[in-house]
Amino acid sequence: MEIPSVVGAGLAVIGAGIGIGMIGGKAMEAIARQPEAYGKIQTAMLIAAALIEGIGFAAIFAG
């Protein structure tokens, strides 16, 4: 039986979603711990989220 590639893409998107969720959560924790580093954390969070998002999109278009 052949698994359609869309399923793989979906799985990849789930992974990316969990990853971005974790980044967001951790960033919130970090901001709560060090509110003065808000700007830096936010920038780092966006970059990391963007990188994971890239994987997600790559998977969607590969699938």
Binding site: A50, L51, E53, G54, I55, F57, A58, I60, F61
Partner: peptide, 11 residues
């Protein structure tokens, strides 16, 4: 750069 182009396009 590929991730860059896909990200903007897909979003």
């Amino acid at each position: 750069p590929f991730a860059l182009l896909i990200r903007l396009y897909a979003n």
